[in-house]
Amino acid sequence: MTARRALAAVVSIALAAPAGAWADDGTDGDGDGVVVERAEFQAGVVGRPVGVIAIDNSLGDVRIEGYDGTTVTVIAVKHAPDAASLRRLRVESLANPDGSVRLTTLLTDRGGAERPAVALAAVRVDLTVKVPRAATISGRVTTGRLEVANVDAGADLDSSTGPIVVRNVAGVVFARSLAGSQRFEEVFGSLDSHAVDGDLAFDSVRGAALTARAYAGDIAGRGVASKQVRLTSISGSIDLEAEPQAGGSVTVTSLRGAVDVRLRGTVGVAVRARAGGRVTLAGAATPTTADRWIEARYGARRDRAAVQVESRFGDVSFALMQ
């Protein structure tokens, strides 16, 4: 083990010798056998704090969890229909002397009987990674689930169609997905999220800014208390329950989707709204047209938050909650 740790001081290690391969071995002939291999290893440069940990797994799920330790522990579980296909699945770990660590899974090329062709659905690699809380996370999945919890230095997350789930994270968070949904709970810091078809959900987000954009997906926010909030959609609906901050802003804009904004708290707000459809302001339906803003002011005058709600072609509703 010490040899391996020393090696990590400079280099890349391919997946450590499997901790144990157990399986149906796939030799039972009916073709639905599954071989599972589980390996646990540590990544990182000994004696150096982990700065950035970048995990790229296009073959399955990634679960990243911060803890009060200093080492990075990786549990990799590979699934394949048979031992030969299993050999095509690799986990590579690269530790740089600057403290950054990169984990990558890859599916190697076919190679005859030794590494036969295999269906994408039949192979997967799931990574569970325990990281020091102070590490900055970069995570990428394709169809798998990307989950990040309990870290303090932000995260940069990408997914194609898999869901992104973020819980109890501080620092600057970026997230992008094509069709994958994104869910954020207890984020303390700036958050920037973009999805094309995925839905975005926010619960207890507090930071300098929350920027969320969806093309066709819906956006839902609860307990949003960031200073600058901007939510936009093209065709999805937006439903926001927020606590505006003194001197802050809440801007919610959709092209075709319905917009429903409810605010609570003690800060005064200056609201302007317009919609191609119906506008409901504080419970009262208000006639308007798509090119005319309706303005209203509520509560204390000092440090009012600027609130703007708009749907070019849909309905808009705005309410204050006690």
């Binding site: 290690i13 391919a14 997946l15 450590a16 690799r90 190697t108």
Partner: peptide, 9 residues
């Protein structure tokens, strides 16, 4: 992604 994968194992 080398055809010949090289790694400890």
């Amino acid at each position: 992604r080398r055809r010949q994968e090289v790694g400890d194992d």
